[in-house]
Each structure stands twice: as C-alpha cells, then as structure tokens.
Design a protein around this nucleic acid. Structure first.
Ligand SMILES: [Mn+2]
Ligand SMILES: [Mn+2]
Ligand SMILES: [Zn+2]
Ligand SMILES: [Zn+2]
Lengths: 137, 137
DNA sequence: ATCGTAAATTAGAATTATTCTAATTTAGTA
DNA sequence: TACTAAATTAGAATAATTCTAATTTACGAT
C-alpha cells in the first residue's frame, strides 16, 4: 500500500490544483499511476474500480478523467479505434498503436524526428504534431 | 455534366471491382470526386445528396463509403474529432487538421520527412505511420 | 427478353462511447 | 458546526455508426 513516486506527484498536483481532493479522485489517481506510465480508457479505469470492490460511478470516472486532463495531471489521446485513451505521461510525446491489441506505447520525443515539414497554410498557425506509428502483430 | 478525370477513374475502379454498379454508388462517386481530391464525412455526403434532390438513405451512404474504402477507391481517415472522414486521395499521405474548422488538408508524402524512428517493439511489425499536423486559426 | 439469385438498398432499431441533467452528497472554509 | 460551491450519481440524452430484416435491383444464365 506504499505509493510510488508517480502517484505521489499526481496526488500533489491534485492538491495544488483548483480541484477538491475527493475519495473518488484519489482512488482514480492511485489506479492510473500505480504501474508507471500507462494508457487507459474510461472503461478500463471503471473495470479496475469494480475489481477492487470500490464503487465509483462511470459518470464520475469520466468527470474525473476529464478534469484531471484539464488540469494537466494526465492527458488524453484520441486513437483510430474511436475511444479516448487517458495517458499518465503528460510530456509531449508520440505513440505506437497496435491495431490488433488496441494498445498504445509511448515514443519519447527524442526518439522520433521530423526533418521536413510543409509550410503552414496561410492564416493558420501550428498547434501540435501527432505521430502515430501503427503496428500489427 | 461532363465528368472530370478523377471521377472517370473512380467509376472505372468501381466497374473493375467486385461491387455492382448501382445508381447510388455512381451518384456518390460523382459527388466525392467532383471537386478534385477532398475529404468528406458520411453526413457531408448525405447533405450533398439531399441538396441535389437525390434520395439515398444514410445507411446506404455508410455502406457505400465503407465498401469503396474496402475496395481502395477511397480511403478513410480517423480524426481527433471522432468522426470518420472519407478521402478521395488514396495515395499514402499525411494531413493538416484545423481544429477550429474540423477540416483536413493533404500533406503529400514528399513534403514531410521523418528522419528518426524508434525501433519497432519485439514481435510487432510496422503497418503505417500517420502524421497529423494540428492547426489553429 | 425473362428468370433466378446474390448483392444492394432501405427504414428504423440497436450499439457504443461519451456527455448531460438534476437531485443528492461532500469538501473545505468560516 | 454550518454554509456553500463543487462533486457525485443514476439514469436519460446524444452522436456517430452499425445492424436487422424486409424489399428491391443488377446482372449472368437461360
Ligand atoms: Mn472506454
Ligand atoms: Mn458524419
Ligand atoms: Zn503516451
Ligand atoms: Zn487526405
């Protein structure tokens, strides 16, 4: 029951955010960060909650994940399988996506490099670049 | 009413595919390819159909777009706005995505370059790389 | 041309992921 | 301890897409 560093840091971020420290938010953070950096759907988290015998409604899971995202404690990743994944890695990074298992694996920014980029269309500005390297088994 | 080359080629691909040449498929292809390469949601296509006074059910629009995709006459692009876009550009290419207007703009493969890629995780193989350059206005 | 049949079309129901609503409970502060 | 804004919740709503099952159509064979 001793907390790892990821979890401790996330709980501190929660405390210093404008969000209230509720039992549900603490439980969800513990689940998210228990195993190093990881990617979860809301349903994944809800299943873990049920397996632990906890009772948190699915609406709360979604509310919580969205608010943790808004407060930069986690981030969200849209995948080609039309589900939102929540990502404990808040650094700017990219992903492998395995189509067979619908799993995301981090690619650190320093391990991928774009050396040529077309010019940004007039009137728009660059927001971010997302690279997904799709894998099969 | 004279057809452009994109449309002619797509109609030929339809003819040489295992799909039957139905009025609905021909009309949808004409809509898709009428204006050079373009990106459409199923709803976009259905709206155009209605504006033209044609009558094709939404189910048929989806069926048709999915089968054209399976037969490589168009391709589909998943975006971060959780809608599937259908793309008349079947070459391997990447996209600008404007978050404000939810529009896709092609980036030709030759105009973008990845110079460093991490090694593929054991037991998996590379399927494809998707780069989305997100823009704001 | 007509027939037979597999494929296509259709309206509407179902599904899935997610968000919304509105009533109840709770955290944190005074 | 009381107050109040924020959080939680069950369940309804939404939105995109797919499914179902009945009807129609394309097209190869007669
Ligand atoms: Mn989910
Ligand atoms: Mn659509
Ligand atoms: Zn990640
Ligand atoms: Zn495209």
């Amino acid at each position: 029951m001793t907390l790892n560093n990821h979890t401790k840091k996330a709980l501190e971020s929660l405390k210093s955010s404008p969000l209230k420290t509720t039992k549900q938010r603490v439980d969800i953070i513990k689940i998210l960060f228990s195993d190093g950096n990881n990617h979860f759907t809301a349903e994944n988290v809800h299943n873990k909650i049920e397996n632990l015998g906890l009772n948190i409604s699915l609406a709360t899971v979604y509310n919580c994940l969205n608010q943790l995202t808004e407060n930069n404690i986690i981030k969200s990743v849209k995948t080609s399988c039309n589900k939102i994944y929540f990502d404990t890695n808040t650094t700017s990074h990219h992903h492998f996506f395995c189509k067979n298992s619908s799993t995301l694996i981090d690619i650190e920014s320093k391990n991928i490099k774009i050396s040529k980029l077309p010019k940004i269309p007039n009137g728009k500005k660059l927001d971010s670049i997302e690279i997904v390297v799709n894998l099969t088994e």
